[in-house]
């Protein structure tokens, strides 16, 4: 690791004050499960690391007066699993159970999970986020959607699809006491040049809380297609949130795919298929088809198209209360 300065602020304002406006100079440390490994490999080389684990206001799960739930950025994944308020959002708990490693659940935080860097092996081996190598080969785990630009990695977050499907917002703090609420759906972006981050925050802004609107009769689910039951990242995943009327007709739907594009992929095509229809196996399958209708697989990842289709289908069926069958 490159030598760096370390600070452990106690308030949100102090965190902002310690962050540099210049990209790459400061990094935010929470659980450390991603950042410390990246620093060891010298892929991330900050001059200062700001540990936000000692800021008390970032550690709690609170119900807000309007029924929303605010989760602090440093709330650990196992604390979310254990929290009774959050039972109404099964998609989130399912995604966290999918992570399955006790250590990652105990040490990893929600903010860190959402902001983690891509697992792309070109990136992790020092070739940069936009390595030319991806197009040439060894791209079996890369993007099948949204991959026409320079970024072909996949966003690795396993909880973000569920959070986006549930219309989560991020509370973002910045200089001069600036507080803003950013829909998670607008947080991620596909970098266009090397050095650009995978999200829209300035280097001196940080995510303090994740705010979930009330569930209000919606149902939701996450479904991951994994290579096995081991600790690897899924090959494809999807989260669905549905509002059904008394006759089981979809009034409103959100379908978000994970592990298939440089950002969590909101599928307007799948949403359009679902609206106004009654959920059954055929409809869920049609939504899956629609979700991958614009897929442009790379040389070695055509298999992911089928997996993504199945992930969408099963997330929808799970959300609608159907048995999904199989693993």
């Amino acid at each position: 690791m490159k030598a760096f300065e370390y600070a452990s602020p106690r308030t949100e304002a102090e965190v902002v004050q310690l962050l540099s406006a210049e990209p790459g100079k400061t990094e935010i440390l929470a659980g450390g499960t991603d950042l410390v490994g990246l620093m060891k490999k010298m892929i991330v080389t900050p001059d200062r690391v700001v540990n936000i684990m000692d800021v008390p206001t970032l550690k709690s799960i609170d119900e807000l007066p309007d029924g929303s739930v605010s989760i602090g950025a440093t709330v650990t994944l196992d604390d979310i699993l254990a929290h009774p308020y959050l039972d109404v959002y099964p998609a989130i708990k399912q995604a966290i159970r999918g992570i399955s490693s006790m250590q990652l659940q105990a040490q990893g935080t929600l903010g860190g999970e959402v902001c983690q860097r891509p697992r792309c092996w070109f990136y992790r081996n020092g070739d940069g986020l936009l390595s030319q190598g991806v197009a040439e080969g060894a791209n079996e785990f890369h993007a099948i959607l949204g991959n026409s630009g320079p970024a072909k990695f996949v966003n690795s977050s396993r909880i973000a699809p569920a959070l986006i499907a549930l219309d989560a917002q991020l509370r973002v703090l910045g200089p001069d006491d600036a507080e803003q609420f950013v829909p998670l759906a607008e947080f991620f972006r596909s970098p266009q040049r090397e050095g650009q981050r995978e999200h829209v925050l300035a280097p001196n802004q940080f995510v303090s809380h994740i705010v979930l609107p009330p569930i209000e009769g919606r149902t939701c689910a996450t479904y991951e297609v994994r290579h096995g039951e081991g600790p690897d990242y899924p090959l494809a995943a999807a989260a669905a949130a549905l509002r059904l009327n008394g006759f089981g007709i979809v009034q409103d739907a959100n379908v978000v795919l994970g592990q298939v594009a440089p950002m969590p992929w909101i599928s307007q095509e799948a949403i359009a298929v679902l609206r106004g229809r009654k959920v059954d196996v055929a409809l869920a399958e049609a939504a899956g088809e629609a979700a991958v209708s614009r897929a442009t697989p790379l040389s070695q990842n055509e298999y992911k198209v089928q997996l993504a289709k199945v992930a969408v289908k099963r997330a929808i069926l799970l959300a609608a209360g159907y048995e999904t069958g199989g693993f």
């Binding site: 499960t33 410390v36 196992d78 105990a106 040490q107």
Partner: peptide, 27 residues
């Protein structure tokens, strides 16, 4: 593994299992 993925550095911090390889000593 140096990045915690092997779990070989598992210890308890305040009773919870964590990987010592991805925790800074100062933390």
């Amino acid at each position: 593994s140096s990045d915690g993925s092997s779990g070989a550095s598992t210890i308890f911090v305040d009773g919870k299992p964590m990987t010592a390889s991805t925790i800074l000593a100062l933390q």
